[in-house]
Write a protein that binds this DNA or RNA. Sequence first.
DNA 1: ATGGTAGACCCTCTA
Length: 263
Amino acid sequence: MLRIATWNVNSVRARLPIVTAWLATERPDILLLQELKCETDAFPHESFTDLGYHAVVVGQKAYNGVAIVARRSLDIDRPLTVLPGDDTDGQARYLEATVAGHRVASLYLPNGNPVDSEKYPYKLRWLARLRAHAAHLLASEQSVVLGGDYNIIPEPEDVYAPEEWRGDALFRLESRQAYRALVHLGLTEAYRALHPVVPGQAPAYTFWDYQAGRWPRNQGLRIDHFLLSPRAADRMEACTIDRQPRGLDKASDHTPVVLTMRD
DNA sequence: ATGGTAGACCCTCTA
């Protein structure tokens, strides 16, 4: 079995005690990180090395930043450090590499709010670029695992109050349509494929805002996803959301999602 | 309509 986790940590340095404790306990083979909020050279490699891991990092000052962390025994090969399609985009939001025979990406999609600013068209352009690149990856017929913070609420069941989020960049129709167009290339969204919506069941969220008591009220969003190519989906065994780290003191506003793949 | 929280950084921006 191969276990791959994705986690928006909202500053890797501020979150280091929580992230390293979780890694030491859960021991995933691969950990995809988002929102490092540090420059590439400031990534705390030693803390991961001490636990038997190594990392490839794409950072920038203060904002964004993504990494692929893997067990030292697993090489991180042929890294791609920018999402193709816009040479002028300097934001550190995409990292892809080959690990354990899978083409794995750690991605951090733009939030896009407010929708009447230039941030929203940037989000839609980023989604279009991701779709074009995903089509290219699918054509290669590799096992592809695209994990990260998509900043997309796919369906009303994935948010505590859909009517309040109707106009938000994470849930508005254009965003969801662009995400659906990506999925409909032939990708499988792991969590929902394994946990179909059942009326009356407890909702599944991966993010709870720091503000307004969203965590204690369990008013969250499901915005962290794994999208799998057919070769990867064939090996999908389990996908779980680990809520435990969100309840800790000094927690990230996101919690890890863990994908288990058969060998 | 507002404020509520967190992180980075040069006090305002992003989420």
